[in-house]
Design a binder for these strands. Structure first.
Lengths: 222, 222, 222, 222
DNA sequence: CATGAATGAGTATTCATTCAT
DNA sequence: AATGAATGAATACTCATTCAT
């Protein structure tokens, strides 16, 4: 049995749990900052543990990346549900989730697959499907309320948000890049909003859900 | 003098010039398809020349990447000037250049710096400055005409276009990814268009040109 | 004093003694099956104790290997003495011990040294010497009786037996490997038997006992 | 196309061919001396080339090991054919090939598989089959002439020879290991020779050729 | 005492760059 | 000038050994 899934066997020692937390925190940060091509040694350095400790908890680098992705997806699902429950206005709920997603700047973290991609595991598949289902509801509600343009779908939304560029360490608040992400998101939201008159015409029929796996593999490397 | 800039010495043999063309063509294609992490050997294979020939004309991989970037920037400058001359409507000119730029999907080609970035050379600096100047004019004209929202600047525009995802080989016309790039661009253009009523409020003061070099280095790896 | 030799200090708790037994049993099995390159973790898994427990009783991997070797040698000495006492026919005694030794397939367990060999400890030296002395007697008796060819010595015999290939788990009884070890031993015994007429001539003078340590180190890694 | 098989494309540069020769020579030597667990870096050091050069010619370590094995098998096939042609006496031919094979001491070079074995390539399969066919003829002729005992088959013969221990560097001519290999072979040949009276009885029915692949994989790691 | 988590040196493999042909 | 073979530093992963729980 893989040591990365001992949860079923034993509750995991306290220090081990803490290390996993440190590793995931460092990994999320370092992948977001410098892409998932950073070496495992760098992740180890930032999390303050030895490389071997990472490999005790994750069988290989892909597994660590996947785990970070699953965590981000799961948190986003939760935020979607919270937004639906707490925001009475469908567009406000939609915008809130968009803002949440934009914070993860996953285009940097999960760039379009460069090298060999490994098979996504069942946990990732499940997290993907759950997230898409949640977002689908969010999109449909905003469209039904007449606030979100009806010629976009959940795939467009995910990809557009994913395209918001990565955080650059120590570069967020000053200089020419100051909150570029926030500005980018604002423009996107304006573009996504329904409007009475014309505006741009979307150039092709909306994508459908067929070949969901391929969509994710080619667009996110996951 | 370095063999990569022999223009001042000798006119360069015809076959050498042809090889450079082949290399640049292959490099642009392969970087766009699979990112700039592809090996030089792959570029050599696609261009049909030996690896040594690439190194005869470009001192290292960065120089080749830079040269491709300079070419793309220069072509975009030219297109900007053509659009200004040919399109009477400022928004039409703006949209035309946006469409041109989106075709380069440079976010894939020049991802935010992963590994060691080298100092950008003078040619890149010049091409950058010239392109920004040209785009500045384009943006100003569209804003003066009341068509482009006035709270965005040329940096926003460049980054948003750059974020449109890369071409996935053999995946453009079918499946769920069908022309997602075109749809993405259309939504962005709608978001960028001026409108009477409110819409989103851009969250921060516009970036300025200070630290231009840093901006490019961190955002494009160039 | 090292915790691996506490016998002089305290009589060793019952559960500790039981653990040592479990470890040695598992180690002998797993080294025989898959070679001494198996990880200590694998030995721990098979013996049902933790890795730390193995290191409590054996200072390092070499010490565990040595201990298994000492045990095998000691048991073989005992068997030699039993055979001498119980078998009236010298050749029968010889063949019986050969069959016993062949069962240990030590060529797998102690392959000619691959990596760093450590200094053999005094216990191993003693066990080696005792075993060679016992086997010497066995060989001499069989030669005196005219049953064992006189141009071989105890070193030849040990090496030939050691060369009988290792057991392959779950592969002993069927397929082309069916009891190859037994057939191999039978041929060797026939080759070792004295015969009136010629047969092969042994190509060189018999080895002597000089440099006994080197002999074992290079031939057995022990 | 793999760079290790450019023979079909181009005749291979002279220095490259020489390097391949050096690599194979060093590999055969170092595998025979210290087993195939030696690092590629060690092979590189002994052959005087860089590690990268080995990887240019062989895609991975297994491929290098396989190539050495194929070479040894092919040379043995050739020797078998030469012996058949040149030796009028069937037993003399048999003994000559046995002596040839014993020189390769392949039990050290190709030990019973410890770790993951990779799929043997078509070249190895072909070399195996050719060698077995040649040896079959040799064995059958010696048995028909009444010189080789009829209860052994080609598998027994291969395994027994393979079990003759590896060469120990600088240890061949002196000390207690002096020509132990030659003595071992002589005893084996005596054991294999037909004799009128009894001798040992082989303990099980002869192996057959079923599952040839499995036989090699488990017994040689190849 | 027992456990198994943590450590980090060692190894196979890739690829930018150099250099002999 | 062009070629592609050679080089070796960098990186993912393993495992003997140590140490906190």
């Amino acid at each position: 049995m893989s040591p990365s899934t001992p949860s079923a066997d034993r509750p995991l020692r306290a220090d081990a749990r803490e290390n996993i937390r440190l590793i995931l925190e460092a990994a999320r940060e370092v992948f977001a900052d410098r892409g998932y091509e950073v070496s495992i040694e760098e992740v180890a350095r930032r999390s303050g543990v030895g490389m071997g400790t990472i490999y005790r908890h994750f069988p290989n680098k892909s597994a660590l990346v996947e785990r970070v992705a699953v965590d981000v997806m799961t948190e986003t699902s939760a935020e979607t549900e919270r937004a639906a429950a707490e925001e009475p206005d469908p567009w406000a709920a939609f915008a809130r989730v968009m803002r949440h997603m934009a914070r993860f700047r996953s285009s940097q973290m999960f760039p379009v697959s460069r090298r060999r991609t490994t098979e996504p595991g069942p946990e990732l598949m499940a997290a993907r499907a759950a997230l898409l289902a949640d977002l689908d509801g969010l999109v449909a509600r905003a469209q039904d309320a007449g606030d979100l343009r009806t010629d976009v779908n959940v795939f467009d939304v995910v990809l557009m948000l994913n395209s918001i560029p990565a955080r650059i360490p120590d570069d967020e608040t000053t200089g020419p890049a100051a909150d570029l992400a926030g500005r980018h998101l604002a423009v996107l939201l304006d573009g996504l909003r329904s409007r009475p008159s014309g505006g741009e015409t979307l150039p092709s029929p909306a994508a459908d859900r067929r070949d969901l796996d391929r969509f994710f593999r080619t667009r996110f490397g996951l």
